[in-house]
Nucleic acid binder design. Structure first.
Length: 422
RNA sequence: GGAGGGUUCGCCUAGUGGCCGAUGGCGGCGGUCUUGAAAACCGCUAAGGCAGCGAUGUCUUCGUGGGUUCGAAUCCCACACCCUCCGCCA
């Protein structure tokens, strides 16, 4: 939810942001009008209410003719108050709708444009170019690690089983990430993955993402697409005592309908309905958010370094940000068989945008409540297995396990193909 | 699924129509006393909107939404959530 004060004080900055995103500039003026309308409705109501309160105080002391006169006056006043109150409620609804129509103000420095207008910040590592490379699914089947056929039989397209070293690899990857976070001072969290509508709504996922979200109508609960949802809603309606950034690392399964992505990444486990993820989530004062964002990115890169993956970092363009983010950096790992980079992590700085709707605040140096900034970033996810298998494959179909990961997969340094027929 | 009980300012709690934005305790903050600390005592201690440079004023909020009333924490209705008991299932 956009900061109304900012829109009032510097509407031009918000208009510029809208332009950079390719969103409607007129939405800013609509919001300013709605704000104006609400304020005048409020003062009208308050003047009437103040009079009503005044007269109400006289009532118990009054008697006789005086009381009758008072009653007559207050009776008409009561109707006026009611009408004025209804006008305020309506003006507030209009204002809220106008407020939701505007996405977060893009951070200075973020590139303008759409999905293809990202800026590559750096490329890290040497891209491996294995001869006769097998793709991750072929490797996964050789290793007895990934079974998409039975996944489809049991649950449908975009479902899969992880078996044998596949199951171990995923758990190891997530643990490597989680331990890195714990050592960096994060509080590890296993959150609920079913949330109430207000939690889903408060984190902004029922807006443009609504079609992506699984809903359980019998209980009116939603399956989360990321632990960002329960981690952000965790401190809803709270005033935090912040002493530096408050950091959580959430481990959860994630569920996505992948509506509208028919035909995209259909092979293997790149784009699936269910996967696991360790997500970093940080609460901090707004003035520290940009720094914290860089830290989250650094932790993501540290993780990819441990996995010995070749990747690049991109600065996502304004039009591709999502409504809550002011800035977003993605790390994309190299995929030899597709000759392209694939997103494996994403970190967003949501500034105060997400926290404002969730009403999550902190006390500043003067002890005054202020809206906090929230940030999130991927630390480990099922999808990293795709890059890991492909980049570390060897000619015989075995896959090298990076050193840092070995302790988390039972000390294995190589994953070997299993015999056929199992 | 059935039957009860509950939801008030960080926590606990008082409050059955105007004297209630709301009692008391705990916790927290400040002070007196003390070499220091403890104890005791005194004071302060919800959030938000609007107007104003400001002092301040004013309005809203007692789970949520509606209703009754000149006036609602208090009466009525609906809903949500929590707890207890019973049943059912792991």
């Amino acid at each position: 939810m956009i900061d109304l004060r900012l829109v009032r004080e510097d509407p031009e900055a918000v208009r510029a942001s809208q332009r950079l995103r390719g969103d409607a500039v007129e939405a800013v003026d609509a919001l300013l009008h709605a704000d104006e309308a609400r304020r005048s409705a409020v003062s009208a109501f308050e003047a009437l209410r103040a009079e009503q309160n005044q007269l109400g105080k006289l009532m118990p002391k009054a008697a006789g003719d005086e009381k009758a006169a008072l009653l007559a006056r207050t009776k008409t006043l009561a109707a006026d108050v009611k009408a004025a109150q209804a006008a305020v409620t309506e003006a507030e609804q209009v204002l809220r709708a106008a407020q939701f129509a505007i996405a977060n103000v893009v951070q200075d420095g973020a590139p303008g444009g759409g999905e293809d207008d990202y800026v590559v910040l750096r490329e890290v590592g040497t891209r491996p170019e294995p001869a006769d490379a097998r793709d991750h699914l072929a490797l996964g089947e050789l290793l007895g690690a990934i079974d998409t056929e039975r996944g489809a039989k049991v649950s449908g397209a975009r479902f899969y089983y992880l078996t044998g070293v596949g199951a171990l690899l995923q758990l190891g990857l997530l643990q490597l990430g989680l331990w890195q976070a714990v050592e960096a001072g994060f509080t590890p969290v296993i959150p609920p993955v079913l949330v109430k509508p207000e939690s889903m709504e408060g984190t902004g996922f029922l807006g443009s993402h609504a079609a992506e979200v699984y809903h359980l109508p019998a209980d009116d609960l939603y399956l989360v697409g990321t632990s960002e949802v329960p981690l952000a809603a965790y401190h809803k309606d709270e005033i935090l005592a912040l002493n530096g950034p408050l950091r959580y690392a959430g481990w959860s399964s994630c569920f996505r309908r992948e509506a509208g992505s028919y035909g995209k990444d259909t092979r293997g486990i790149i784009r699936v309905h269910q996967f696991d993820k360790v997500e970093m989530f940080s609460y901090c004062p707004p003035e520290e958010a940009a720094q914290e964002h860089q830290r989250l990115l650094a932790w993501e890169e540290e993780m990819l370094g441990k996995l010995e993956l070749a990747y690049r970092v991109i600065d996502v363009a304004a039009g591709d940000l999502g409504s809550s983010a002011a800035r977003k950096f993605d790390c994309e790992a190299w995929l030899p068989t597709q000759n392209r980079y694939m997103e494996v992590t994403s970190t967003s700085n949501c500034t105060t945008f997400q926290a404002r709707r969730l009403n999550t605040r902190y006390r500043d140096a003067d002890g005054k409540p202020q809206t906090v900034a929230t940030l999130n970033g991927t630390l480990a996810t099922t999808r990293m297995m795709v890059a890991l298998l492909e980049q570390h494959q060897q000619p015989d179909g075995s896959v090298r396990v990076p050193k840092a990961l070995q302790p988390f997969v039972g000390g294995r340094d190589v994953l070997e193909p299993v015999k056929a027929g199992s």
